[in-house]
Computed example of a mutant assay.
Amino acid sequence: MSLQKPLMRGMLGKRLRFHLPIAFSLSLLAAIAFKYAVTEPRKQAYADFYKQYDATKEFNAMREAGIFESVRPSEE
Rank of each mutant, 00 (worst) to 15 (best):
F59C: 03
L20M: 07
D54E: 08
R17S: 03
L28W: 10
M62Q: 11
R17T: 02
K5G: 06
K5V: 04
A23T: 11
E75I: 04
A31Y: 09
E40D: 15
R17V: 00
E64R: 13
L12S: 04
F24L: 15
F34E: 03
A37M: 09
K5H: 10
E40H: 13
S25E: 14
K35E: 13
M1D: 12
I67Q: 12
R72P: 10
A55V: 05
N60P: 00
D48N: 12
P21K: 04
M1S: 13
K35Y: 15
R15N: 03
F18N: 05
E75G: 04
I22R: 15
Y50A: 09
Y53G: 01
R72E: 15
K14W: 02
S74Q: 11
F34R: 02
L20V: 10
E58V: 08
L29A: 13
K57N: 05
I67M: 12
V38C: 08
M11F: 05
S74L: 09
K57V: 07
A61V: 07
L29I: 07
F34N: 05
F34S: 06
F24A: 14
Q4C: 07
L7S: 11
R15G: 00
A61N: 13
K51M: 05
R9I: 09
R9M: 10
L28Q: 11
L29N: 06
Q44F: 04
R9H: 06
I32R: 03
D48S: 11
Q52W: 07
M1V: 13
R17A: 02
F18K: 11
Q52K: 15
E75C: 04
N60C: 02
L3Y: 14
P6F: 05
A37Y: 01
F68T: 04
A47L: 14
S2A: 13
D54I: 04
F34D: 02
G13M: 00
A47N: 13
R9S: 06
R63W: 02
A30I: 09
N60L: 08
K14H: 03
K51G: 04
Y36F: 14
M62Y: 08
E58F: 03
F68P: 00
L16T: 01
I32V: 15
Q4T: 12
A33G: 02
Y53E: 08
E40L: 15
V71N: 06
G10A: 00
Q44M: 12
L3G: 14
R42P: 01
